[in-house]
Design a protein around this nucleic acid. Structure first.
Length: 348
DNA sequence: CAACCGTGGGC
DNA sequence: TGCCCAAGGTT
């Protein structure tokens, strides 16, 4: 099973591997060219729960600005967070910087899966992926793609997430000892382009002859998943203020932990169920409540945000005046509030 | 270990 | 339009 499955998959990958900014082509790898571990690590962290299309521009900007791990390790925290703004899951950016500094101090990336796993922001998947792709070590790489492909190959009917340990064992059965880096990337490409969540293209699949789910006609139904909880509704208020004397904006850096941790934003109320809570404005001013509201959905709740604006020279109780503020450094929900408010400031 | 943690695109 | 989803990690 393993031998012929991997053989068919790798033959397809040799002919159809996608060209990606961080990837070494199978032809180059066959010549002995190895990828830069820094670029593999950076791409894998960016790709956690994030699509290739969303990552590409961020990856190119990061590697242009910080070409190696030493350069990234020397970067200012706020610069890295600003460059990550909009990509989401901001703990990744904080861990990225901590990891870069640990690796730079150590003189390079660990060359074992266990060593990689000990790094901040590097879990079981990412450690295995770096080991396989950057170092061609025979790690068992299991991500969402591999779970989906494997569940179909074996027609595994147990729902996720309970089926995860079984799927990991089955994925290990499929994994060859030869070409682990190309094999891992081939599974990703297969999952991303052919063995997709909906409407899998079984008719052109290079491993259709190995697939039990295709034979049973249930490929599109797998993997089965436990039902998800509904997202509750929350509400809050943000205050956007400008100081006329120098054009500075009132900005609050959010706490390191929790939602949007370490990112800049506008001060405001907590975000709670049951309507916006009573809240004292961050400074005393004649606040204007804007028509309309910001709608945004996070991983586990919907948010409705009221936006209030003012111009003032007062000393803030919350946040600080920042003349160097750039809206490009904002996380998306704050960017939406900015987009609603910015036109109103033209008269100021 | 279940809950928490973003965002944009596809259907 | 609302829901599902995407190369998961941390606590």
């Amino acid at each position: 099973m393993c031998e012929s499955f991997a053989k068919d998959l790798l033959a397809w990958y040799d002919a159809h591997a996608r060209v990606l900014p961080w990837r070494i082509s199978p032809a180059d790898r066959a010549k002995g060219v190895m990828p830069d571990p820094y670029r593999i690590w950076l791409s894998e962290v960016m790709l956690q729960q994030t699509t290739v299309a969303a990552v590409k521009d961020y990856f190119n900007r990061f590697t242009t600005r910080w070409p190696d791990v030493a350069a990234l390790a020397a970067a200012a925290d706020a610069d890295v967070m600003a460059e990550w703004a909009g990509l989401g899951y901001y703990a990744r950016a904080r861990n990225l910087l901590a990891c870069a500094r640990a690796v730079a101090s150590a003189g390079g990336f660990p060359k074992t899966e266990a060593g990689l796993l000990a790094l901040p922001g590097v879990g079981p998947y990412t450690a295995a992926a770096i080991a396989a792709i950057a170092f061609d070590l025979p790690a068992v790489v299991v991500d969402g793609n591999v779970e989906r492909v494997t569940s179909r190959i074996f027609a595994m009917n147990d729902p996720l997430p309970a089926a995860r340990p079984k799927l990991r064992d089955l994925a290990a059965e499929l994994s060859p000892r030869e070409r682990p880096g190309d094999y891992a990337q081939a599974m990703m490409d297969l999952g991303a382009t052919i063995c997709t969540p909906r409407n899998p293209a079984c008719t052109i699949c290079p491993v259709f002859s190995h697939c039990a789910a295709r034979r049973l006609g249930i490929a599109a139904e797998l993997p089965r998943k436990a039902p998800k909880a509904a997202k509750p509704e929350r509400a809050g208020v943000v205050y956007i203020a400008r100081r006329p004397s120098d054009g500075a904006w009132l900005i609050e850096t959010r706490p390191e932990k929790g939602l949007l941790g370490g990112m800049p934003g506008f001060p405001g109320s907590d975000w709670v169920a049951g309507g916006a809570p009573a809240h004292e404005p961050p400074l005393t001013a004649d606040w204007l409540t804007l028509n309309g509201e910001v709608r945004h959905t996070f991983t586990h709740f919907h948010l409705s945000l009221q936006v209030r604006i003012a111009r003032s020279d007062a000393a803030p109780r919350q946040g600080e005046w920042r003349a160097d503020f750039s809206p490009s450094a904002l996380p998306t929900v704050m960017r939406k509030a900015w987009d609603l408010a910015a036109p109103q400031f033209h008269e100021f």
